[in-house]
Design a protein around this nucleic acid. Structure first.
Lengths: 218, 218
DNA sequence: GATGAGTTCTGACACTGTCAAGATCCTCGG
DNA sequence: CCGAGGATCTTGACAGTGTCAGAACTCATC
């Protein structure tokens, strides 16, 4: 309603037949709806309403609901790439880079809940979409790069792909389950830290294992 | 269609007004639908259809769709508790217990895709539901027990709750993202192992970090 | 200025979740 | 035996949804 762009910006957006930039507006509204109502409360028509456009308009740009959600997921990957690259670049050494990367990942997830609610939702998103695959691989690449650096600096025997997958699982799992688990921990009488701090703790704990020592016990 | 219970079992289930055990039948059908169509393709009416019952029947037992999905999630936790407890009991030492636990967790997730698709889906399930909290905490408890054992045997300084949370994040993240990540790895020219094997590899890598050594390099 | 491609709208359809009201069945006290 | 009451299930209705076909509008280009 009191939408993102002020009516003055573009001359009377509402009485122009052409929207100007519908795809972007739809992606934005979609992320908004997802953040407020979750994927199960998502509605194409609600998105169209917020973009002040008819209910069938989105179809022309995104095909169907799946298409729009996939576009949102792609945007999420893009944010992820931007932020994690910046985190890695600002880091001091491989270990610090991974810690900062983990923190950046969960921070993006928290700050863009609408986008990230949908990234790995297999049945809401079309994983075959080229842009999805492209940007997903790119995001994965940033992580792989950071792990390669760790391997170079600390442990050349490290299985890089495996370690990268492990890291990603860890942080994604963290943002997925932290809500319920916080409650379970509370029920058991303990409280846990903030998510970004947890991500960093997790990373450091994990790195000790990744860096390894003479393939010790077992 | 060729449903679970043969028509002979109970005398002509279909022409009896009372179903006999509708709640169970609904939970079962719901898990079926979830496994086939995912949470976004889930439909209360489809569930009712498979249980050969009118579209409003589920409401009487579960309130609304959220209620039924929550019941399915509770069942998932129950499976999880059963299987992980068995895994831990059959293990030889704390390290082996954790490895088996991780493997059991992902195995349950794979073998009950309908149930587990919904366990941590915050906006499809009512996390305040007492049974959900109860059984979730119980499942968490099994994991905490295994970590406590590790702490006792290997590293008394371990932060147990934190480590348990980390483990759970890791395996849950693994089952969540393995589909897309497999594709990304393939796009990069590598292939990854089967999920249960991955879970065990992950666990062993992690344990090295948990067990720790003099907080080594940096 | 007409043509045609690119956008957006209107209207319709089948499907969904939820609610209210009614029908059916079982139990249990008389 | 039976009939009242509660549990269970059905029917019917409502607003909301995604998708599709076809029409309406806009704009650039010839």
């Amino acid at each position: 309603m009191v939408a993102s762009d002020t009516p003055q910006d573009r001359p009377a957006k509402t009485d122009r037949y052409h929207h100007g930039n519908l795809p972007d507006a739809l992606r934005e509204s979609a992320a908004e709806v997802l953040a407020e109502r979750g994927v199960s409360g998502f509605s194409l028509r609600e998105v169209a309403r917020r973009a002040e456009v008819s209910h069938a308009a989105p179809a022309h740009h995104f095909g169907d609901a799946r298409g729009l959600l996939t576009a949102v997921a792609v945007e999420a990957f893009q944010h992820l790439v931007t932020e994690t690259e910046a985190a890695v670049a600002s880091a001091d050494g491989a270990v610090d880079a991974l810690a900062k990367l983990g923190r950046a990942y969960v921070t993006v997830s928290i700050e863009h809940p609408g986008h990230c609610a949908v990234v790995f939702d297999a049945d809401a998103v079309d994983a075959e979409d080229p842009a999805y695959a492209e940007w997903g691989t790119r995001a994965f690449g940033v992580l792989v790069g950071a792990i390669e650096r760790l391997a170079r600096e600390e442990n050349p025997d490290l299985d890089v792909e495996l370690a990268a997958f492990l890291c990603w699982s860890m942080v994604q799992g963290l943002v997925d389950i932290h809500g319920p688990v916080q409650k379970m921990a509370a029920k058991r009488g303990t409280t846990l830290s903030e998510i970004p701090d947890l991500a960093e703790s997790f990373t450091h704990l994990l790195i000790a294992g990744l860096v390894g020592h003479p393939p010790a016990g077992r």
